[in-house]
């Protein structure tokens, strides 16, 4: 008890400081304009099925020829994930989607899917790491949009058609840069965002060819 008495002013002070910090943090978060939701949403990863990725719906087909998706299925569904309209016509995939709209989720692709997409020259490959890492080596044809400097690349990004296949990667699955960039692109209403999660490390591990050119942003 004596010990407690001796320390109680200290504990009171600590409680005061912690309370002030919490109060200031909450106030700042409310009024700063960049506030975070207090409870973070769970991040869900969805593996992109080949059928969605490679379903060949050539863009030059007259859209009037395509059957419109059943509106009873698509109603109330916010399509965040890149889904082909064809896939939306499948009621099962639409049901899956509706469960996920309440949480943040990302569609990930495997190495072989990425390779095939690159080989077929579909999509825009974006390296979300910082410029220094990009200079040291990147996947061929990738452009560099560092996720931490998105603002500097805003004009480039808004010029990209929204239905472009956006293929993102950073270092590895522990790296959040690609997810950060994906969030940003999603806010800009890009429809087809895919993350190659194993990223640069996975690419190197698989012994894939590396582009060491200091390729400027194109």
């Amino acid at each position: 008890m004596k010990v407690l008495n001796r320390f109680s002013p200290l504990i009171k002070e600590i409680l005061i400081i912690v309370s002030i910090s919490i109060l200031v943090a909450l106030l700042f978060n409310t009024f700063s304009g960049k506030g975070l939701p207090l409870i973070r949403k769970e991040m869900i990863k969805v593996q992109a099925p080949d059928s969605v990725l490679f379903s060949s719906a050539p863009s030059n087909i007259d859209s009037a020829l395509l059957i419109q998706p059943d509106s009873s299925i698509t109603k109330n569904i916010q399509v965040i994930a890149p889904l082909h309209e064809q896939a939306l016509r499948n009621p099962a995939s639409a049901t899956n989607l509706s469960d996920k709209t309440s949480k943040e989720y990302y569609t990930v692709i495997t190495l072989s899917q990425l390779q095939r997409l690159l080989k077929e020259n579909r999509g825009l490959l974006i390296d979300a790491r910082n410029a220094e890492d990009y200079m040291q080596g990147h996947i061929g044809n990738a452009i560099n949009i560092p996720a931490l400097e998105i603002d500097n690349h805003f004009s480039e990004i808004v010029a990209i058609p929204r239905d472009t296949l956006m293929l993102l990667y950073c270092n590895n699955a522990d790296c959040d840069l690609a997810h950060l960039l994906a969030d940003f692109l999603r806010d800009l209403e890009f429809k087809k965002i895919y993350i190659y999660e194993n990223g640069w490390d996975g690419w190197i591990k698989a012994g894939m060819p590396v582009d060491n050119s200091k390729g400027e942003d194109r």
Binding site: I22, A25, N29, L36, L38, R40
Partner: peptide, 18 residues
């Protein structure tokens, strides 16, 4: 996950104020 944002908000202010 649900503690991540609240920590990201409060920790820096605790550092700043101390």
């Amino acid at each position: 996950v649900y503690l991540v944002n609240i920590s990201a908000l409060v920790l820096p202010w605790l550092e700043m104020i101390t």
